[in-house]
Design a protein around this nucleic acid. Structure first.
Lengths: 330, 330
DNA sequence: CTGAAAGCGCTAACAA
DNA sequence: TTGTTAGCGCTTTCAG
């Protein structure tokens, strides 16, 4: 394409040394008003912008951040990333997004590890246990986990209290008089899935209700169809549940559609409660009763922690508040 | 954090020159079996991975691509990006995503132009007319536009035939006997909005129906509420339309909800047709009749064109096929 | 306040 | 087949 001016061109035009140009560009040392103006004029005239590779090489930092995400077309994650973006951009960082989803399906492909030489830090929304090649990079760079975090270890993380949130959801159903409450869970690789399941069990036990394994289904994925399948298998039960706690709004919607197709009314015959409070959950009919996660804030908080660490600080993990949102489905 | 080994460390350990190390790393020149093995052993032992900044500086290319997107949490765009990611990752490129949405609302903020010094090429999904600071970068780097493209100029682009797609949608309604067909359009900055509107007008004219400006509403945004508002104002009309063509599925859903709230049945009282075929359009009830855009393929094609250009080739613009998807809403 | 020069980690031309 | 060396564009001592 076109050859771009380098710092040398600027120095020459302004009749100063490249060191001086660097100083005015970075305000790293005092420069006399007069030469500063000359340099600025030269910069403007040439349309000069620094080559980031030269800079990164010299300073050993790139102002690039890596966001590791299981699937960024999932609205839950994309909201979080919005939050991350908003705070990092303001501080002059750019984000590199690595979508991990191909990696799960396609065992052959593994995350290109050169990502980690490129960035100053990483925010991970993905599952890390059993990913030693990723965990190894935690000695190399500052990490922060968001929403999902390694079960053991010392990575600072931001998330809601999934266990308590699940207790709240199930308690709400119990308060409504439900006794046979089904659970649609996701693959329990994810820590949040385990914790929500625990919450489900705790709430039932507190109410003196025995956990019935027949009422628990594991969805293959987090999409509508998986929810529908799980609901279908629930409908085969001799005695039906009167309520369903689905671990995500997308699952809940799949469940509701499947129930309706079989002639069940929601919430009259079977109540359904979801999780996440995605934008579409208020649009779907019946509007979803669900646990709201503060997605944008999760992302913002994670970014803030990372940025502070990058600045030499040492911020800690945070737990943000969830909220029970009452609508029509339960 | 931790100091990472450089190419020097490898060279020393393998007892060769750094040039040789570089050669085995890049397979750029023949190296004897024996020394190659020594180098590889050293690399493995040290866990060496090349510093991308050194490499980029020397080769003047980064294997980074920029994706400019109006709002990546919009499922339409995130599907496209999935397509882009899939093909670029396979070729060893990483993508940097710049979300333009803050820029529209927040006039103060403007896209950090240093993005363009960092990447080898750019794929733009965003509106470029009236963005001279962006257009200027087209002389600097290879660009390809996807879905949206500059009205004039020479950027290769990938999209569907929006005009024809709109004709198809409206024709379908006409075939169903509709004569009063409303249009919910979006801000017509976007070329696709203009073209779809043209398609709407063409189809009506061909049917000998006069375009009635009273039946046309411009939504403020592409979200549910905007669709609802537009529908609300349509309902104030003395004579109601019998069908609505909404320029996106999200608008269509907003429209349907607003109509229902006013006691109108869809499609019996008013038929509604959408555009895009987002995943949720088949889940919503009534399931949306809509024009399907091949989102993933759009992204893949755009990425292929860019990659070929980067490789010295000269691929051209492509128009992909759309598809009318008949479901329940019209 | 300014300039010369070393060095960041790598590639590639040139020599051997 | 291998090594030496000159950059790539920038930041940062170190002198002055």
């Amino acid at each position: 394409m076109k050859d771009l001016p380098s710092i040398n061109a600027v120095a020459e035009l302004a009749d100063v040394s490249i060191a001086t140009v660097s100083r005015v560009l970075n305000k790293s040392k005092p420069v006399s008003e007069q030469t500063r103006l000359r340099v600025e004029a030269a910069v403007a005239q040439l349309g000069y912008r620094a080559n980031p590779f030269g800079r990164s090489l010299a300073k050993a930092q790139s102002h690039l951040l890596l966001v590791l995400v299981p699937d960024f077309s999932n609205p839950f994650y994309s909201q979080i990333i919005k939050g991350i973006e908003a705070v990092t951009r303001r501080r002059g960082y750019k984000i590199l997004i690595a979508d991990d989803s191909n990696l799960w399906t396609d065992r052959a492909e593994t995350l290109d590890l050169s990502y980690f030489r490129l960035v100053d830090g990483v925010i991970s929304l993905t599952h890390l246990d059993e990913r030693p090649e990723l965990m190894a990079e935690m000695d190399t760079l500052p990490w922060v986990a968001c929403s999902e975090y390694p079960s053991k270890g010392v990575v600072p993380h931001v998330s809601i209290d999934h266990r308590q949130a699940a207790v709240d959801a199930v308690q709400y159903l119990l308060n409504g008089g439900h006794k046979r409450i089904a659970l649609i869970t996701a693959e329990e690789d994810y820590l949040w899935a385990q914790q929500r399941r625990e919450g489900y069990e705790i709430a039932l036990q507190r109410a003196g209700i025995q956990v019935d394994p027949n009422l628990i289904r594991t969805a293959n994925d987090l999409d509508y169809e998986s929810g529908g399948q799980a609901a279908g298998s629930l409908l085969a039960l001799p005695e039906l549940p009167t309520a369903v706690f689905a671990m995500s709004d997308t699952l809940a919607i799949g469940v509701i559609k499947a129930l309706r197709r079989k002639g069940k009314r929601v919430p009259e015959d079977i109540a359904v409660i979801g999780f996440d409070n995605l934008p579409l959950s208020s649009v779907f009919e019946p509007a979803l009763t669900t646990i709201a996660q503060p997605m944008r804030e999760l992302g913002e908080a994670a970014a803030q922690i990372l940025l502070e660490r990058l600045a030499g600080g040492t911020s800690e993990s945070r737990t943000l508040a969830h909220r029970l949102v009452l609508r029509e489905s339960a």
